[in-house]
Design a protein around this nucleic acid. Sequence first.
DNA 1: ACAACCTGCTTGACATGTCAAACAGACTAG
DNA 2: CTAGTCTGTTTGACATGTCAAGCAGGTTGT
Lengths: 170, 170
Amino acid sequence: MTRWLTDDEMRAWLGYRRLRTLLDLQITRDLAADSGLSDADYDVLSTLGDAPAHRMRLGELAASIRWSVSRLSHHVSRMHQRGLVTRDDCETDGRGATVVLTDAGWATIQAAATRHVASVRRHFIDLLDPADLAALTTIAGKVLTHLDEVTPPDPRRGGARTQRDGTTAP
Amino acid sequence: MTRWLTDDEMRAWLGYRRLRTLLDLQITRDLAADSGLSDADYDVLSTLGDAPAHRMRLGELAASIRWSVSRLSHHVSRMHQRGLVTRDDCETDGRGATVVLTDAGWATIQAAATRHVASVRRHFIDLLDPADLAALTTIAGKVLTHLDEVTPPDPRRGGARTQRDGTTAP
DNA sequence: ACAACCTGCTTGACATGTCAAACAGACTAG
DNA sequence: CTAGTCTGTTTGACATGTCAAGCAGGTTGT
């Protein structure tokens, strides 16, 4: 027997869904208009910008922004065309690829970050009071804790991966 | 001068971002595994399922789930191949297209809805207490109110669309 | 040392989304 | 009525994401 959502629950769920859709849309639009970057570009560039020497192994970078390696590889190729990043051979592992920020990439992400923060403030953070922020952090914490149990973020470090039926992967 | 995010603000923002990424991923996975539907399929089917006579004008349907008309047209073609919906001529407007749920589509969405609600409860709603739900609704309300001011949902009803620079579209 | 097996990355085929152009059916002003 | 314009939808070219090979460089057991 199905437990449907109550009115309050439905309001919260639909609110979240619409928030997600429209807020992301707006911030994506701002990012494109202000800096000529997609969300994807921004994730890659900002993560590289925080990395030592502005370089990171492709696989690590992918894991840290939770992309598939394949997606990142394709995307790095495109960003390479635009002169934002470079591929470098890895010194310790012949198979490895290292993604490196170019000077242009670094300049781009610095300029973009400023405008992006402004956009996030304008459409989100500055609209909320401290209690809202705290509540949001709490909610995210609860849900993320649960999700980490259901699907460990990194199977290799987190122990055996648990399947939907409770068994363990071969 | 840029006002960067404080620690609390950053926690809330990153929490939201990760929540959005991982929760959506999980729910999408469940939906595909349980019912063989994508999020996109689900949005279309459930909206049609709620519509009178299970039919809706293509443009209205697109607006109600906030897709571009073009996207919906493509997607309806694909869903048509799968036998979930049909295209019908509109009686009052020769240009019009009406999207109609097939029997198979109706059966599919009914079965899917049950499992989808369970998934949403398991990974989200049931993890939160009433205060969390209320807070979430409040937050969504604040942000959505703001976004509606910035970009009216339907330019034709809401008055002139305001551009980023404050001018009005031609 | 070397065969068999991992691993990290790239690639190609395909699914899905976006944008602008093309269309055909309604309106509107003379 | 009819030319011009607007509107609702479709379409095609292209951007981006996913999945399953493919491949070269490591690693391991004997």
